[in-house]
């Protein structure tokens, strides 16, 4: 993705055109919810009409998840709930990464917190996901007013302006905490995520 955040249809289009077995990482501004999952499902059905199964993995151990996924043939699997995973669980996913390899597309629906954790605890998992596809704020069910309210909260809390945050990110002086990732996406600079 280059420049501003793509629309959801483009995210699904990019991911859906990848080869079978690919791992696709979608970053959502807010914690992924049923509305977003259904939007993705609907977009996928419109473009590709796949068999898509959404799996909430928040309470699932990585190896047990692999066993469930390997029972599926070439379905698209949309995994969500990663923001609830502890570092220990990410480490287990890292160790057992290859047990997740399968014939269908694996979609990883990630919040900013999950993006940080993958980078820190599961670089092997990250290497198979590759670059992220970031969904802009309007696809995360936030109105323009809600976005502005949230930006105001972040500015006041950290005492910084949007330009300062963007400049810090561009100079790679910005620690990518979930709030910072959220701020960049709200500021239409999800390309820096």
């Amino acid at each position: 993705m280059i420049g501003s955040e793509p629309q959801l249809f483009e995210v699904v289009r990019r991911g859906g055109n990848r080869a079978p077995g690919s791992w696709i990482g979608i970053v959502s501004l807010t914690e992924p919810d049923e509305i977003l999952i259904n939007e993705i499902r609907s977009e996928a059905e419109t473009q590709f009409n796949p068999r898509l199964l959404a799996i909430d993995i928040r309470e699932t151990e990585p190896f047990a998840l692999a066993r469930e996924m390997n029972k599926l043939d070439n379905e698209w699997v949309l995994l969500h709930g990663f923001e609830h995973w502890t570092p220990a669980r990410w480490h287990a996913a890292e160790l057992n990464r290859n047990s997740w390899l399968r014939g269908g597309l694996n979609w990883f629906l990630l919040s900013p917190a999950a993006v940080s954790n993958i980078a820190r605890y599961a670089p092997n998992v990250k290497s198979l996901i590759g670059s992220y596809l970031v969904i802009g704020p309007d696809q995360s069910q936030m109105s323009a007013e809600e976005c502005e309210t949230r930006l105001t909260q972040l500015r006041e809390h950290y005492g910084m302006s949007d330009d300062q945050i963007i400049a810090a990110a561009e100079n790679h002086e910005l620690e990518m905490t979930p709030h910072m990732v959220e701020w960049l996406i709200l500021s239409d600079r999800g390309d820096l995520v």
Binding site: M1, I2, V115, S116, I118, A119, R120, K126, G130, S131, Y132, H172, E173, E175, M176, D191, L192, V193
Partner: peptide, 20 residues
């Protein structure tokens, strides 16, 4: 060039100040 930039951004996630 776009793909290289995205890969670079991915690698830059989660770096501490010491690692930088």
């Amino acid at each position: 060039a776009g793909a290289v930039r995205q890969m670079g951004l991915s690698y830059s996630r989660g770096l501490s100040h010491r690692q930088l």
